[in-house]
Amino acid sequence: MSVLEVTGLCGGYGAIQVLFGVDLAVAAGETVALCGPNGVGKSTLVRMVAGLSRPSAGRVALRGEDITAVPGPRRVRLGLSTVIGQQAFGTLSVRDNLRMHAYPNGRDDEPREAAVDGALAVFPRLAARAEQPASTLSGGERQMLVLAKTLIQRPAALVIDEFSLGLAPVVVGGLLELVRRLGAVGVATLLIEQSVNVAMSVADRLLFMEHGTIIATHTPAELRDSPDLARRLVLGGHAA
C-alpha cells in the first residue's frame, strides 16, 4: 500500500483551475521526484497535499486514510511533513527552533531534548551553531535547519518543494544524502524539483508535469539512456 497517494486531484485559485486530475503514489522507502517547468502546477499540488489549499475534486490519502479534508496541522501529527522554503524563527537560536517543532513528541523535557539532540547529530554544521540565531545561518544551513525540524516530526511521508534552488552543489549533495537515508528507514518522499539532474541522482521514479497533469513517468535509467527524451520533458514538450 502506498504511504502517500493522490487521486484525481483538481483545483486552483478561484475561477482559475491549475490541476486537472493529478494521480501519483509514493510507497514506503521510495523517493519520487515531480519535475516540470515553472507554471505547470507543482507548487499548487504541494499546497493541496500539505492541506494549505483545498482541492475542488479528488483525494489525498496518507497510509490509506483519506485526509483531503484534514487541516494542515493535523496532517503533521498524522505523519505528513512538508518542506517549503527556508522558514525559521530568525531571532531564536537553532536549538530553540528545533524545540518548537519537538512539542508533538511530548511536552516533557526529556523526550523533547532527545529529539532535538538526535536532529543535531544528523547535521554537525547545525550542532556547531546550535546557540546562534537562525537569522545568522547561510542559505544551505537554513535548508538544513528546515530538514532537521522535519526529522524531529518523524514523518511517514515527506514532501520537499525545490530544496536545491539557489544552493551550491556541495550543499545539495549533502541534503540529497539525507533524503537517501530517510528512504533507507522507510520514509516515503515526494521531491518537487526543477533540476532533472538533481532528481535523477536520488529518485526511484521521475514524474513529469505539464498543464496541471502528470504526462510521463520514467526511471533514472530510462532517462539516462534517452537524453533527448529527458530534454523534451524538461522543456515541457512530451514526446509519445
Rank of each mutant, 00 (worst) to 15 (best):
M1L: 12
M1S: 13
M1E: 14
M1K: 12
L4K: 09
L4C: 11
L4I: 12
V6G: 10
T7H: 11
T7R: 15
C10H: 15
G12V: 08
Y13W: 10
I16G: 08
L19Y: 05
L19W: 06
F20P: 01
V22Q: 01
V22I: 06
D23C: 10
A25L: 03
A28L: 01
E30M: 11
L34I: 06
L34S: 13
G36S: 07
P37E: 11
G41I: 02
G41A: 07
T44F: 05
V46W: 05
A50N: 10
G51K: 01
G51V: 06
G51T: 06
L52A: 13
S53D: 14
R54V: 10
L62G: 03
G64P: 00
I67Q: 04
V70K: 04
P71F: 12
G72C: 10
V76P: 01
T82I: 10
V83T: 04
Q87S: 13
A88S: 15
L92H: 04
M100T: 15
H101F: 12
D108P: 00
A114T: 13
A115D: 07
A115S: 04
V116C: 12
A119V: 04
V122F: 10
R125P: 02
R125H: 14
L126Y: 09
E131T: 15
P133E: 14
S135R: 15
T136S: 15
S138W: 03
E141R: 10
Q143K: 11
L147R: 01
L151I: 11
Q153H: 02
P155N: 06
A156G: 05
A157N: 08
L158A: 06
S164C: 06
S164H: 00
G166H: 03
P169T: 15
V172L: 04
G173A: 05
L178R: 08
L178D: 00
R180L: 03
T189M: 01
L190T: 09
E193I: 05
V196G: 06
V196W: 05
V198E: 00
M200Y: 01
S201A: 09
V202S: 01
A203Y: 09
L206A: 07
L206R: 08
L207E: 05
F208H: 11
H211W: 03
T213M: 06
I215P: 01
T219G: 12
P220L: 10
P220D: 09
D225I: 02
S226C: 02
A230D: 00
R232Q: 11
H238C: 12
